[in-house]
Design a protein around this nucleic acid. Structure first.
Lengths: 167, 167
DNA sequence: ATAAAATTTCAATAATTATTGAAAGTTTAA
DNA sequence: TTAAACTTTCAATAATTATTGAAATTTTAT
């Protein structure tokens, strides 16, 4: 496999994986492109390389910046803007975990909490609803807490701290 | 909040969360409905409750069975088929984690491995591609292993084993 | 202040994904 | 073996989501 093929394979795999971490294809592909680039890229560079429109590139870059994954960099002597992504995988994982927790998991926990707090009228079905949503709420809570703790360990969180304890 | 409202809120929240664990809305809603039901439901019951077509119900039930989350149960004296879902949240989490690992994470690891194994021709960009995909491969691998270990602890895996170690 | 360069916005359109519903297939009871 | 009960399949359609491209806006150099 040559460079170009490998690059395309990486970008398309990462792109289709986007759904797994809750972002769209173009967004994931832009991030992937920046992730393996040796220098910051302009909007022009990105749209040409990925064969997507200017508008699409602009909107998805903004979203990546909202996530805190991509940042603008100033290249001296250049008028246009350039972009880079966080290059450290651990830091990247930390940002993503934090954002997903905030955007998706926390709101769900809130709903589960509300639902499991309805008045128990003593009927079978109400008891079941309360019991099951409470169990789900606790699990989600625990997973969210665990994820955030894992991800807040700054140094080698995964391999060092937890991982070995579980061997 | 009354039972019916709470029930609907739970089903719709769980449904929209479906994307987070990689399944579609109808599939997640059917699972949610079964999850809070006090007895097995027939296809008829499900399509009426969720207001979805027979075909849709049939297809999504099959998928849930493929995932191993829903099973057919025989109700004596009844001709039609009835369905239940796994009621234990921990077991549910275990099944989901295992399936997502198999369906999505493992294939990605394979691609990352291939890409990071291309011949190093000494150019800057090739070095960067290899370095970054290798880092991503290792992280994904570690997370996958951790997830599978967590999820294989049969008893109170979360709260008991790992969770306290991290306090 | 002007105008070229660059970026953003957003209505229109395309692409993708989910859902329906009716015909075909299967199972079961008598 | 028949026919009613039930389930599955899948082409057609609907709903949702992503993408384009050109006009409007903003930024920058002179």
């Amino acid at each position: 496999m040559q460079y170009q093929e490998a690059k395309e394979k990486f970008i398309s795999t990462w792109g289709s994986l986007g759904t797994l971490w809750g972002i769209n294809k173009a967004m994931a592909q832009i991030q992937a492109l920046l992730f393996i680039s040796t220098k910051p890229l302009s909007m022009e560079d990105i749209m040409i390389d990925l064969k997507i429109s200017r508008g699409n590139t602009s909107m998805n870059l903004r979203q990546l910046m909202d996530w805190g994954i991509v940042t603008k960099v100033l290249v001296s002597g250049e008028r246009k803007e350039f972009f880079t992504t966080e290059k450290d995988v651990q830091e990247l994982a930390r940002i993503i975990a934090k954002e997903r927790s905030r955007r998706e998991i926390k709101p769900v926990i809130k709903v589960l909490d509300e639902v499991s707090s309805i008045k128990n009228d003593g009927t079978e079905k109400t008891k079941e609803l309360i019991k099951q949503t409470k169990a789900l709420k606790e699990l989600t809570d625990d997973l969210d807490t665990l994820m955030n703790k894992l991800v807040n360990q700054k140094q080698n969180w995964l391999t060092k701290s937890v991982f070995k304890l579980m061997k």
